[in-house]
Design a binder for these strands. Sequence first.
DNA 1: GCATTTAGGTCAGCCATATTGACATATTTC
DNA 2: GAAATATGTCAATATGGCTGACCTAAATGC
Lengths: 181, 181
Amino acid sequence: MADLNAPATSDLRPSGGDRIARQDEPVWDIIELLFFAYRDFVSEPDDVLAKLSFGRAHHRVLHFVNRNPGMKVAELLDILKITKQSLGRVLKQLVDQGYVVQKEGANDRRQRLLYVTSKGETLAIKLAGLQTARVARALGELGPNGYEAARRFLTALIDSDNRDGVLRIIARADRARRQRS
Amino acid sequence: MADLNAPATSDLRPSGGDRIARQDEPVWDIIELLFFAYRDFVSEPDDVLAKLSFGRAHHRVLHFVNRNPGMKVAELLDILKITKQSLGRVLKQLVDQGYVVQKEGANDRRQRLLYVTSKGETLAIKLAGLQTARVARALGELGPNGYEAARRFLTALIDSDNRDGVLRIIARADRARRQRS
DNA sequence: GCATTTAGGTCAGCCATATTGACATATTTC
DNA sequence: GAAATATGTCAATATGGCTGACCTAAATGC
């Protein structure tokens, strides 16, 4: 096994081990690592989904509905940044096959609030489990501050004008989950 | 602006600020941050490409050919993990429009080695510049060890049976680049 | 109470990008 | 000379985006 603690490109870097931004020089390694990491990150769920004749689009819908029970269709569209026609297709399949149900809003009866069924929750958790195993393994290879560093780096990559919204979505889902459990 | 240094879910975590792996509990935040971060990471290049009637597939081809001049078609297929039919379509468009050229291999004349033209290099660097600006901004928000931590985290996310290969590809491209410049 | 807005759904068609399978050509290797 | 290799191509199919148009039902505003 290669020495993963030795920077692959250490000979390019100053002694501190940290990158000093060279103007005009792209950060090729981070760009490529993001590509490879994301490719592998979604590949295991993709395989599971393929056996159910589902795709990555179904995963995203199932994931966010599971995390935010009772979410409005409009909220989901905003998170996924796709059109309602695109959502409609995959959502219909998830509903028809019993992974997701829609309930009329109590206050506003125009709303079709989204919930996973127990079948849907089982699948959502199975898929999250695959990704969690990967992330946990990765964090395990890092030092004690790995989780915090990863979280901060990923957060900082998000569009700054969107970041607060994203963090709110995540925090809200965490809070709701904690209350249910 | 929200306090980005305060963990969004700090109330969930033990005092050290670091995550202690709770068995059976998915790392929802990292999973979702990866989704949002990657979505934004590719969005600016996507916009530029759309004006040229290109898509993300063209970006990936152009990127890796630019980084690895003289690369074989088979290598590219292996990196992208797509079929040659899928590659063929986008590669043909890049060649037809003068972004990429193919040269017969000197040793093995069956090979069609891939190179970017200066037009291709210009576009590749423009796209990498957008992503570099985002990464540099993100790293700038982190501490002095941010770059190293990000690199290690992303590396650790990659399939372990593939990681050495990926690191070799990146290191090789870096070495070749250094020699050219 | 009626007009407008909002939440959501749907039909039709188009495009990009991926797939499988079959087959073709040139070249290298054994 | 046969087999393997590198690459290209044709045809069909699937997924998941998109735009544009149009619809219903319910809430909201005056």
